[in-house]
Simulated assay, not measured.
Amino acid sequence: MSQVARINVYIDARKIVGNPLLPEVYQILKIIRPEWRAESIEPKNFTDGITNLLMGYYENGKFDEDVILLRIYGEGTELMIDRDLEKKNIFVLSDAGRCPPLYAEFNNGIAYGFVHGQTLDPDTVRDHRIKRLIAEEMCRMHYVKPEGREPKPELFSKLQKFLNIYPDRLDMPEKQKRFVELLPSKDKIIEDFCELKSHLEALHCEIVFSHNDLLLKNIIYSKEKDKITFIDHEYAMYNYQPYDIANHFCEYAGVDEVDFSRYPGKEYQLDWIQHYLVCWEEINGRPGSLVTDRDVEEMYIKVNKFALAAHFFWATWAIIQAKYSKIDFDFLGYGIMKYNEFLSRKNEFLSLKLPDNQ
């Protein structure tokens, strides 16, 4: 496992937005890239997510050669993200060739490598070549087996932790009004959780090491290398195999401008899943020809059932963020949309029947 520098530095997210070359930044970069000259370092703001602040640094205009990323954690995110586990995930995946290396950790963030390429959008994610590369890369990640970690699904234990800190009320009057009027009570949410947990656990799905957050901007495509790379492994953990696929399909809707009609239809899903299952057989040393239409149909049904868990997960996550996060994003509105989509699809997906002879 690679060595990582531990630097006793705190970066003020409010200051770095207006002054990306803070002395604290130089202190970190000097340890990672001692040959860089301070006057030659250039910054780039990569912040696109809604959890952290992300800054990139390179020297003398050499953006295409070497970029160091600094991720400054959002306030309150430690309530939902195990930062020590996140660092272990990066080590494991970097050693497996699935992500760039972790260089350093500082008091409220990490420094790590950069992946060149384009982030996906609602059109490029559907490109025939790109979607197959995504399925293949997901297979490779699912095949990773972190040493010393029990292959036990963590989805529902993670959700239970969310529910334990789910807010009783929100601080601002306008938020509180929407919170009360547009969301069910916490008791009803817990009731939905218990029903969903019971239904999905009964499917007895395979357990794999999963990314769990494959929104479009966490997927990088390099046209030059014809390669897909997944980034941001904050939520990586052992999980039910269909969940990662389901969550990815749910993320076709987008984040800033959510459109749930982008959720892939059955024909599209069957094609995607068939390619994934062939890759899965082959990466496990078995011929891809073993995959049957019944296998594909069974995974399709499981994926759509787990789509409910994905909506539920990010709905509760967003509502907690609405309570604690200082990031300028309508977390409450996003959580309400995700929960409503969970409700609108609930009966449809729970009623799907697996093929006979189970």
Rank of each mutant, 00 (worst) to 15 (best):
R83V: 02
T77M: 09
E75S: 15
E59V: 01
Y57H: 02
T51W: 10
I72Q: 10
P101T: 05
E86V: 07
P101A: 14
P101E: 13
N19I: 06
L21R: 10
T47M: 01
I50K: 07
E75Q: 15
Q27C: 12
A38R: 12
E24R: 01
I81P: 08
N60E: 14
D66F: 09
G56Y: 01
G74P: 11
R33N: 07
F46A: 00
E42L: 03
R98S: 04
I81M: 03
Y103T: 01
T51R: 05
F91Y: 14
L70M: 00
L22A: 10
V92A: 12
N89D: 05
V25E: 02
A96V: 12
Y58Q: 00
M80P: 05
P100T: 00
G97W: 00
Y73L: 06
S40D: 15
L29D: 02
G18H: 14
Y103G: 02
Y103H: 06
L85E: 15
E86N: 06
L54F: 08
T47H: 04
L85S: 14
G61D: 02
A38E: 15
P101I: 08
G74I: 04
T51K: 06
E42R: 07
G61C: 07
E75K: 14
L22Q: 14
P20E: 05
R37I: 04
E86H: 08
I72R: 10
W36Q: 00
R83D: 08
I50A: 08
F46E: 01
G18K: 14
D48P: 07
D48N: 12
S40L: 13
Y57D: 00
A38S: 11
K87M: 14
N89E: 08
E75A: 14
A38W: 12
A104C: 12
E59T: 08
G56C: 02
L54V: 15
L69P: 08
Y57K: 01
D82P: 02
K30F: 06
Y57G: 00
E39R: 14
E75W: 11
N45S: 10
I68R: 04
G18I: 05
I41E: 03
I50Q: 10
W36H: 03
E65T: 11
V17C: 11
V25W: 02
K87P: 08
Y26V: 06
P23H: 06
L69S: 05
I81N: 06
K87H: 10
L102N: 05
P43L: 06
D48C: 09
D95M: 04
L21G: 05
D95P: 04
N19A: 14
L29Q: 07
L54K: 01
